[in-house]
Amino acid sequence: MNREQLLDAIGQADEKMILEVAQLRSASSDDQNSPKLYDVKAVHRKGRKRLVIILAACMALALCSVAYATGLFARIGGILHITNDPDGMKTARYDLPGDIRVPFSAITGDVVNSTEYMRQYWQMQKDGLDIPLSISAFNYDPETNSISIDDGFVDNHLVYTDNPGVYEKLFDSIDEAIDYIGFTGSINMPSLTGNPRRIGVVSMGIPSNDDPNAAEPPTYTLSLIKLIRAGGIDGVWTRSTAEIDTEASSSESPTFAYLRSVALSSETRTVAGREFSVLYTTSDEHPDLLTATALWQENNVLYSLDVSFNEDRRARAESIMLEWMNGFAD
């Protein structure tokens, strides 16, 4: 292989990604002859960056609203909306009925010290060093069109982040991870048969300033904490999360969002007296792979479960999702 072949391969990049950059170029150009490809949405880049990075691996969400509302037959965590965007993408958004951010005093565990690591990461980045952080994505093997079942977190399936304001710590058990967070409320991570092995807590901080050339690292304020458990179960890739936003997180309402151009659809499932929202997506590159994301919110914690599977594993994926939903039963 040579550089020309590498450049040719870059030239075959996904058109949506090329368009993203075209929009940035177009929006920033002061050349009157430069085309405005689309009406570029006003996006606060820093906020957007933070949002995208923390949710980098797969489905994304985000939020900031309240507890649950009581429906006629079941409690409702939030309402899922899907809209068609002018650029051909679809956006899903999970709206909650109020503000679920918690005060700093509600977080009492060692996770509060993660902001010190963020300062160290900032310095490492300034010094041109790699930041030792990765966030897991599902493990799909395009050669065999199947999902790995060995729970192997192969490096080349991990998603990296360059943001020094993100820190991840791994644990051997859910209990240890919950202790590390020290949330004064309750966190419920329903157990799943098959016991996915990878458990981590990702925390995110907001820097006191954005100057990359500052003499000293900025101070970081903890804005989001996310407990993640992931792994393969019988050929189905799973990733369940519990997310807590602090009072430092964005007060903009909500959220979500995950952009997909194909087959984005949703449904609601009533299980254990709760109405869960479920989002279904496929991707252009792996059209045979379906990902279902179940969403729930309770007691100021946003919960999600991603299951990614091929058609022949649908029944197993369904049973995993049901097991997770039943885990919230009173």
Partner: peptide, 17 residues
């Protein structure tokens, strides 16, 4: 190679991509 590059790019944070 093209497929791998696309996968790599999709996995990058948006700013880096």
């Amino acid at each position: 190679l093209s497929e791998a590059i696309s996968r790599f790019l999709k996995a990058l944070p948006p700013d880096a991509r």
